[in-house]
Amino acid sequence: MSETPHIDIDYVAKLARLDMSEEEKSKLGSQLDDILGYFDKLNSVDVEGVEPMAHAHRVANVWREGDLTGETYAPEILTGMAPDHRDNQVVVPKVVE
């Protein structure tokens, strides 16, 4: 990682499902390489045996008891916001498996 880091931006953009022009990609690429270089600072600290911190506090066992049914949305709420819909279903271009 202390080698000059470089993002394979085509691969990452595809993973992230972001369409970008070549110009956008090249500008972003060099900016991100700078930022990644800055991230190298992290290697200066010893984290051996440190527990990763995924949450800001240590609370556990938060859940909903009783399996009780709540309110549902009428399909019109979804169809009212969906870019395309038919017969209460959301329509998208044909998905090929």
Binding site: L68, G70, Y73
Partner: peptide
């Protein structure tokens, strides 16, 4: 087999009319 969904209180049952078992 639960009455409600894994992460919300919307009910689930097989065969309901489309998009009637949703919430935010």
């Amino acid at each position: 087999k639960t009455r409600t969904k894994m992460f919300s209180a919307a009910p689930y049952q097989y065969g309901a009319a489309p998009n009637t078992l949703t919430d935010a």
